[in-house]
Design a protein around this nucleic acid. Structure first.
Length: 820
RNA sequence: GCGGGGGUAGCGAAGUGGUCAAACGCGACAGCCUCAAGAGCUGUUUCCUUAGUGGAUUCGGAGGUUCGAAUCCUCCCUCCCGCACCA
């Protein structure tokens, strides 16, 4: 019996999945007022297939898409594959196959698994970024960016991962290590690379954050990443050349007693004197060999360069040190040190016996610590008595007047390094000509196709294909060399949501009309790990494309939802090495897709982490079966007033809870409703249909099956979401129901006590209600629950049977009770 | 250090000023069903007390506001996540 039921679910799922596809149920067209775009972060198709996190992510989106569709929206809900990338290339090499083959196989597997979950994607809009039809537009945008000064090539200190064998963007370095290899220190190399001018949009990226309906933590992460600080850029003369220094505390300028230049500063050697050269070299050797982990605990160290700078306001000679604690890439890589008012400078000064000059009044006259707060200026000729805030302005103005400084804004955000020395990515459409220099590929020659035939081994595989490598210069026709670097795959994922709106267009990346209709994405769903990567790049792209006339929106994703993580039964993150991985496909086979979907969204609020549990999935199976059984077996007739109350109340609650993505509590309401239905003999058909509708986003397969069983020819997935009839909701009725339950509990309690204490087994029950409430008690219900005879009297009934005068105990909402 | 989010009954998890000893699930226990097991069904699940009552103690800890606090305020402890010598 068990097994047959399980098999039924399997069959039902297959049946409806193919019906949805045949009937093109989920393929929207441009048009209509209420568009709604639901999107999950598209997956990287790994060879190991879908994991539970994917299943969870897509279930969340699917429920939402189905709900919005039934609410009458024209819903765009597409799926694609972030198919380029290093892991595929490496995996393919390992398996001695081609990345293209490897990826295609992985994608096919993903599609199969996603379909088996019953996800309502518009499969005609599918896209994969490794398709030339897609990456052609990557190249096109790259050229457009180049034309508009948003792409440039520059030699600079870049991050390099030896395991990836390529350079990385700043965002891909986590804690000094490669984002893919947490055991690999990133090396700093001086290389010439392609950059995208993301910092041009730093201010706008920051400014718009408060307007986004995103989780706070993602917003704060982006804010920190962009890292705006306002301050003053001050010029110090060193050997008659200008050196700039950035500070947020120009009010402390009279407290500067030395300067510190970063040990990694490219021009460091130019200010090191002959005499100090040896010292500096020794120091650099030591500083360079320091590992990232040690930097945390590292003491501030430095060495005198031998040079002095002139103080811009006092003209004093200020010694310059090279230091290990100054970040080369931020500001100008050199800082002015004010030991009295900056703890780091203080530590440094103490260590090397440098003077400490107080310029801000502080309450405590401590010499153990720097006073970092603001206050009234002292020892600052011409600015004494001023408070920090006004002093900042005045001093900056004074510097501006002397042309030795200006107010500036600094960001931590760096330009996006996009070139990668790897094969499996979009070729960068550039050509190097000996005569003409860097020449962009002409638009009509796009796409620059990734050649299949390359040798994998050391270095960039693209250099091994000479017919790819050797080209003619588009300008002068002389022999030239093609760029062999490919693009960071985050380039691909920065605009895929736009391509979904018009994925088959082979003349343009997308039609403006279509993109204007569908964008922005109304609900985006994905993990938090992309806060400072994909989500920043995509925002940048949208703004850049807007300014190039492709779009008219400012932000790609208005609402963002971060799902929690599904942990293994042991409480740890699911991982192969821990052996706690649960494969969604296996679960679907064993318990059915509806059960898996139900389980994933019922155990906890979807934004929180939750635990996989065998008992949990089995509990979900029990419920889904029960749901199906009860709804398919209940007699069609009329609904009681009580049932109507519960149905409408449930519709009302479930609607608002799904809207707010509180699927877990929505399902609790459904559970309660089912209990109420169980207590009934029959139900009105239209009520039953409404119930099937509200369960259909979460358990779509059994919903369709039940819908069909009731003689419906349509798809419930495309039906109108029911509206709660407020007039049927009666809190009074619910209160009365509570009284029944309370009375039932009371009687049971008394029976128990009587049985235990008096060893009697009462057979008859007498209730004494206050006259007004006589009709509130449902004697039939109570009798059926207790399997005993019950008589009810009004407390003032002169003929009542009440040997122990229990009627005196009666209160509103509580009858007197006598048993015998 | 900075920023964000948590700590609720055996476990998971709702609840953000009264209707809260606190939904729901899981587990556990008891009963029914059954030859038996599972499934299913019914009930119990902070403690004491009790013919349905009354009381005590609970929502990380300590204080406070309030007629009233899991919910608001202050301080502290603790866990998770992100950034981190950014001048």
């Amino acid at each position: 019996m068990q097994d047959i039921k399980k098999l039924d679910f399997q069959k039902i799922e297959k049946k409806w999945q193919s019906k949805w596809e045949k009937k093109k149920a989920f393929e929207p067209k441009v048009g209509g007022k209420n568009k709604y775009y639901v999107l999950e972060m598209f997956p990287y198709p790994s060879g190991s297939g879908l994991h539970m996190g994917h299943a969870f992510n897509y279930t969340l989106g699917d429920i939402y898409a189905r709900f919005k569709r039934m609410k009458g929206y024209n819903v765009l809900y597409p799926m694609g594959y972030d198919a380029f990338g290093l892991p595929a290339e490496n995996a393919a090499i390992k398996e001695k196959t081609h990345p293209k083959k490897y990826t295609q196989k992985a994608i096919n597997n993903f599609i199969k698994q996603q379909k088996s979950l019953g996800l309502s994607y518009d499969w005609t809009r599918i896209l994969k970024t490794c398709d030339p039809e897609y990456y052609k537009w990557n190249q096109y945008f790259f050229l457009k960016f180049y034309e508009n000064g948003l792409v440039y090539r520059k030699k600079s200190a870049v991050n390099y991962c030896a395991k990836c064998d390529t350079v990385l963007a700043n965002e891909q370095v986590h804690d000094g290590k490669c984002w893919r290899h947490s055991d690999t220190e990133v090396e700093i190399k001086q290389l010439e690379q392609w950059f995208i001018n993301t910092t041009k949009y730093a201010e706008e990226l920051l400014k718009e954050i408060p307007n986004l309906n995103w989780p706070e933590r993602i917003k704060s992460m982006q804010k920190n990443w962009i890292g705006k600080s306002e301050g003053t850029e001050i010029t110090f003369k060193i050997n008659n050349t200008d050196w700039k220094v950035f500070t947020t505390r120009p009010d402390t300028i009279f407290g500067v007693t030395f300067l510190v230049i970063s040990a990694q500063h490219p021009q460091l050697m130019s200010i090191v004197t002959e005499k100090q050269k040896n010292h500096v070299d020794t120091f650099l050797k030591m500083a360079r060999s320091t590992k990232q982990e040690e930097i945390d605990k590292l003491e501030k160290e430095g060495v005198f360069t031998g040079s002095y700078a002139l103080h811009p306001l006092t003209g004093e000679k200020i010694p310059i040190y090279a230091g290990n604690f100054v970040v080369a890439e931020y500001g100008s890589g050199m800082v002015m040190a004010v030991p009295a008012h900056d703890q780091r400078d203080f530590d440094f000064a103490k260590k090397y016996n440098l003077p400490i000059k107080q310029v801000i009044k502080s309450k405590e006259n401590s010499i153990l610590k720097a006073y970092e707060g603001s206050g009234q200026l002292i020892n600052s000729e011409g600015f004494n008595e001023l408070f920090s805030e006004e002093a900042k302005t005045h001093i900056t103005k004074a510097l501006e007047y002397k042309q030795l400084g200006k107010a500036v804004v600094q960001y931590k955000l760096r330009d996006w390094l996009v070139s990668r020395q790897r094969y499996w990515g979009t070729p960068i459409p550039m050509i190097y000509c000996k005569e003409c220099g860097i020449v962009p590929v002409e638009e009509k020659s796009l796409p620059v196709k990734l050649p299949d035939k390359v040798k994998f081994g050391k270095g960039n595989p693209l250099t091994t294909n000479s017919s790819f490598l050797k080209v003619k210069c588009p300008k002068c026709n002389s022999p030239a060399r093609r760029e062999t670097d490919t693009m960071d795959t985050f380039f691909d994922s920065s605009w895929y949501y736009l391509r979904f709106t018009d994925n088959k267009n082979n003349k343009k990346p997308f039609e403006k009309e279509k993109v204007s209709y569908w964008m922005s994405v109304d609900q985006y769903i994905g993990g938090a790990e992309h806060a400072n990567m994909h989500l920043i790049y995509a925002r940048f792209f949208t703004k850049a494309l807007r300014d190039l006339g492709f779009l008219s929106i400012n932000e790609p994703f208005m609402k963002l939802f971060n799902q929690g993580m599904i942990h293994g039964e042991d409480g740890h993150v699911m991982s192969k090495s821990r052996g706690n991985v649960i494969d969604p496909l296996e679960i679907t086979k064993k318990y059915g897709a509806d059960t898996l979907r139900f389980f994933l969204v019922s155990s906890a609020s979807p934004d929180k982490d939750s635990l996989w549990s065998k008992e949990g999935i089995e509990g979900s199976l029990r419920f889904v079966k029960k749901l199906y059984t009860i709804l398919s077996e209940i007699k069609i007739g009329s609904s009681s007033v009580k049932l109507e109350h519960w149905i409408n109340k449930t519709i009302k609650n479930v609607t608002s809870e799904i809207e707010g993505m509180k699927y877990n509590t929505a399902l609790i309401n459904v559970r309660r409703l089912l209990e109420k239905i169980e207590e009934e003999k029959e139900i009105k058909k239209s009520d039953l249909l409404s119930i099937i509708k509200i369960i259909s986003p979460v358990t779509p397969h059994i919903a369709e099956e039940l819908w069909e069983k009731l003689g419906k020819k349509s798809l419930v997935s495309l039906e109108q979401w029911p509206k709660a009839d407020e007039s049927k909701i009666s809190e009074e009725l619910e209160a009365q129901e509570k009284i029944q339950h309370q009375t039932l509990d009371d009687i049971k309690n008394i029976i128990k006590i009587v049985q235990e204490k008096q060893n009697k087994n009462p057979e008859k029950i007498y209730l004494y209600a206050i006259p007004k409430e006589l009709s509130v008690y449902n004697i039939q219900y109570l009798e059926s629950k207790l399997d005993k005879k019950i008589k009810i009297f009004a407390v003032n009934d002169p003929n009542k049977y009440d040997p122990e005068n229990k009627s005196q105990k009666a209160k509103p909402g509580k009858p007197g009770i006598y048993l015998e």
